[in-house]
Design a protein around this nucleic acid. Structure first.
Lengths: 203, 203
DNA sequence: TGACAAATTAAACAGTGTTCATTATTTTAA
DNA sequence: TTAAAATAATGAACACTGTTTAATTTGTCA
């Protein structure tokens, strides 16, 4: 009697519908349109029923944050086939930036917005972030084994490299218009030359 | 008859009261407490009267954003007394990070929150940002003149250096708790070793 | 079919930014 | 000094927001 399984599956489906509706609103109409009522409208449910699937709005964002880390990790893995450690590390950075630019809303939720952090603390489940960060650390470690980053601390190098690509994409995401005025270049050019400089730093 | 001047002065005073109350609420009770009604409560005015001094809430944030750039620029100038271009550039970065850590709420408004960007676009007054960015560019240019950053584009180097320090502080500000878990170090240690790595990159 | 469980709902609550007609205050001019 | 004009402050209202809860509907199983 698979009714229990079916019910579970149906619940997961509605849950996914909510998350998809939230992302679609975020992408198409901006952050301010991601309200419980608008999500409910979109999936033709009442606002209250959202709370059968998520404790509160922050938990909903946390679920999107988890989804985002899944997409990011897949993207990161695509760079792992490269054999040369230095080129692999650079491809890793490029994959990260590509993820951020192609999924600005996910990136926003994962690394910029403060709604997520409250739940990150409460849940205390760092697995998703750790998996991605460990991959970076491993790539940096193999660069070190190949003679790069001499006399530099592994953790510190990994963190600064992460900070740099995070800085680039978060400035583009949150201050894109101002950047165009400031740096006097299109955002994609800004990103590309940013990667070039980063390449020259990695020795 | 100095009544007009006095009136102008009084208006500026109330305006400043509103901005101060907003920042105090932001610092002491967090972002969610910065509501028009709570600001009005704090200065013992009615909520509606805030709109005599600011067009809307976003304009209020824009005014804080301008205030923040004033503080940042002063901080940046303090590093300009150093003669050696490389050490001056590093001190510039340190000053930037110090400003961000000491004025997390200002930094949030200036570079992270999206409330500000709408107004930045509308106002089209990039002077405050430009003044700070030009100072960085000048310092990078003088490093180039001293033989550093060979074959690298001035604008790109400046942007990446900015991105790096921005990345470091914005991760600390928005994901401080997760960072402690991820990098396994206190935030001030993370920042310090970050600056060390950055120093090693600048050659 | 009846009993139980789970999901859904509408209504309500307290909060938000913002607008606006009304009131109060202050400045200007006669 | 007094009347008129300009300015500022107010509180109520509007349309939102996230969230809770009692009541209702729906579905499952004995």
């Amino acid at each position: 009697m698979g009714t229990a399984e079916r019910k579970e599956r149906e619940k997961a489906e509605v849950r996914k519908m909510i998350l998809d509706a939230a992302m679609e609103l975020f992408i198409k109409e901006g952050y301010d349109s991601v309200s419980i009522r608008k999500i409910a409208d979109k999936i033709e449910y009442s606002p209250g029923s959202i709370y059968t699937y998520f404790e509160d709005k922050a938990s909903l964002f946390y679920a999107l944050h988890v989804e985002g880390f899944g997409i990011l990790y897949q993207k990161q893995l695509s760079a792992q086939s490269i054999i040369d450690p230095r080129e692999r590390l650079i491809a890793h950075g490029r994959a990260y930036i590509e993820f951020a630019v192609e999924n600005q809303q996910y990136y926003d939720i994962m690394f910029i917005q403060h709604e997520a952090e409250e739940i990150i603390c409460k849940e205390k489940n760092w697995d998703h972030g750790h998996r991605s960060y460990d991959l970076l650390k491993r790539n940096v470690a193999e660069c070190k084994a190949a003679g790069m980053f001499k006399d530099l601390n592994l953790d510190s190098v990994a963190f600064v490299l992460w900070s740099t690509v995070h800085g680039i994409v978060s400035l583009v995401i949150r201050r894109g218009v101002a950047l165009k005025e400031l740096v006097n270049q299109e955002n994609n050019i800004i990103i590309e030359s940013g990667l070039n400089i980063l390449r020259s730093f990695i020795r």
